[in-house]
């Protein structure tokens, strides 16, 4: 069964209009047209008349959960959410950054989304191997079934084949290329700290110029801050202008976390954020 992007766009518009007209929400986080068809942008519809500007196509990869934390608590928001995006919503609810009752989640079941820079399909690399949202109020299409389910960790094979030294060299090389534009943290739905630790001056955790030690400090700490929280949308890596495969590190940590604590990020509202939740039977492997 092929995905009908037109149908999803149509449904998205219909639901957005209904929600705005009824006053149930004060804004709808969706996608709008960018400078061409292949570059849609996040778009916030605030009035029923804005709804006509909404689009949805295979390039709408941005994770709109990023914008949830930009509005004051208690703002009523509807959000268009694909599988990974919905996990971000769940994770933010777990972290009590947003309240479930303030949200209307417009779930988008979809596969075959494409990277707008390369045109390459992103399913196998990111999106956690899921096609259907894990949380939604209204589903904007039919649930996807029968797609070959790939493990979210399959793409790690080549990375895991490297030994410790090779991995260290790999990251020194890759992170050494970072130009410190911070697009990764801007795109990330979980990077909501303001100020980010790396922007602080007292104490100064790392150099701010795009050079190796500071780059490592920024990224390794950011990876660490996202451990057990990264929901594998892949936005950081797509946002990166120099194509650093940040998702590899995140995935590796997510895999370790899942193996050690039996919990993947953002899968269930009832879960507690795994690294700040203590259970007597927690694995001690992390200490070894």
């Amino acid at each position: 069964m092929a995905i009908s992007f037109e149908q999803i766009e149509q449904n998205l518009k219909t639901e957005a209009r209904k929600l705005l007209e009824s006053g149930k929400v004060s804004l709808v986080l969706a996608y709008g047209r960018g400078y061409d068809e292949n570059h849609p942008m996040p778009y916030v519809a605030k009035h029923p008349s804005d709804v006509d500007n909404i689009v949805f196509n295979e390039y709408c990869t941005a994770n709109l959960a990023r914008y949830l934390t930009r509005y004051p608590r208690r703002t009523k928001i509807a959000i268009a959410a694909k599988a990974a995006d919905s996990r971000a919503v769940v994770q933010l609810i777990q972290e009590d950054k947003v309240c479930r009752e303030d949200l209307v989640v417009l779930g988008i079941p979809v596969y075959g989304m494409k990277n707008f820079k390369t045109g390459e399909a992103i399913d196998s690399k990111t999106t956690g191997g899921l096609s259907n949202p894990v949380l939604y109020d209204i589903l904007l299409g039919e649930e996807v079934h029968g797609q070959p389910v790939s493990s979210p960790y399959d793409v790690l094979a080549a990375y895991e084949a490297m030994d410790k030294e090779e991995r260290w060299a790999f990251w020194q090389r890759e992170l050494g290329r970072c130009i410190r534009c911070y697009a990764c943290r801007k795109a990330c739905p979980m990077c909501y700290c303001d100020p980010c630790f790396i922007d602080q001056n007292k104490p100064k955790w790392g150099e701010k110029s795009p050079e190796s030690p500071g780059n490592l400090m920024y990224h390794l700490t950011r990876f660490h801050h996202l451990a057990g929280r990264c929901i594998d949308c892949g936005e950081c890596s797509r946002a990166c202008p120099v194509d650093i495969p940040l998702y590899l590190f995140h995935k590796k940590v997510a895999k370790d976390c899942e193996e050690m604590f039996g919990q993947a990020a953002g899968m269930s509202i009832g879960d507690k954020p795994v690294l700040v939740n203590f259970r007597v039977d927690d694995s001690d492997k992390i200490l070894e």
């Binding site: 972290e95 009590d96 950054k97 602080q200 507690k272 954020p273 700040v276 203590f278």
Partner: peptide
């Protein structure tokens, strides 16, 4: 500087931090 992540609330063994 607080970003309201409430990590502190969750980890404190003495229940001292609150949101």
């Amino acid at each position: 500087s607080c970003c309201a992540c409430q990590n502190c609330v969750r980890v404190c063994p003495y229940g001292a931090p609150f949101f």
